[in-house]
Design a binder for these strands. Structure first.
Lengths: 130, 130
DNA sequence: AAAATTAACGCAACAATGTTGCAATTGATT
DNA sequence: AATCAATTGCAACATTGTTGCGTTAATTTT
């Protein structure tokens, strides 16, 4: 339908995701890009990548929004039903690909998407006795 | 420890929550309050109410933040482990008190809080064929 | 390989949301 | 009634996200 182009800015953003093990906010991406492109462009690239199903959006308990690359095998129908972990100490958000919640819904609801975010202490911060 | 006071502004905010069946954003509360108090005051009241465990904060997939009154019986230790439903059509967020996800966590994580938000169509919007 | 098409960009300006400092007010306590 | 500190209003600021528009550049077509 659409024709998404491979621009230098988009490539740069994707490289940042490639390097990062954790989810990134718009601001964090901007810092790593070092003026490769405008702030607005990053917003637009993120929107496009979400639409193209290359990254997904995660909204944290504290209201911050982050993005992470989808590193699943290319499925035809793609639902981000895995959990995310948000560390209260280092504020890193990581995908817990293996954690998939099971639940029972009341009737008459149509569920399209789920957001399952757990927060607490990540292994790194848990072991460095806070 | 602290001494939270019962002010007119706080009472007004609580009345708004009492009347509402759905979760409310700061803006929605402000509109219903009709200049009872300043915009900043509402932010501070919400912070206090969350701290006092009277309301809880819900952050939606789209990044919007809402608050809802906790209408559970007064438990000593209080974890908001129920789900929330966010309608993509009417944008209302409701608590699904009965829906509690079960999941298995990897070791070395300490989970303090969970945020389980489902989005799609609520019964009201589902039945009014969109 | 050049021309044509249009997605993507930069810039500026704006809108929404949340935060902070400080003096004045007011609820609770003595 | 006097005291104390939590709460408020105001102003100013910070952050985050959006929009319009003329220009640039990635693809496609010729």
């Amino acid at each position: 339908m659409k024709a998404t182009r491979n621009t230098t800015a988009k490539t740069a953003v994707l490289e940042v995701f490639e390097k990062s093990k954790t989810a990134l906010s718009h601001t964090e991406i901007q810092k790593q890009l070092n003026d490769v492109c405008d702030r607005v462009t990053i917003y637009r690239i993120l929107d496009r990548l979400v639409n193209d199903d290359i990254i997904h959006k995660i909204s944290n308990l504290d209201g911050t929004v982050k993005y992470a690359k989808c590193n699943h095998s290319h499925q035809r129908v793609h639902i981000h039903n895995h959990a995310h972990f948000s560390c209260e100490n280092c504020h890193e958000i990581t995908c817990l690909e293996s954690v998939k919640p099971s639940y029972i819904m009341p009737h008459n609801y149509k569920v399209n998407e789920i957001n399952f975010t757990l927060s607490g202490l990540c292994p790194k911060c848990l072991n460095s006795n806070i």
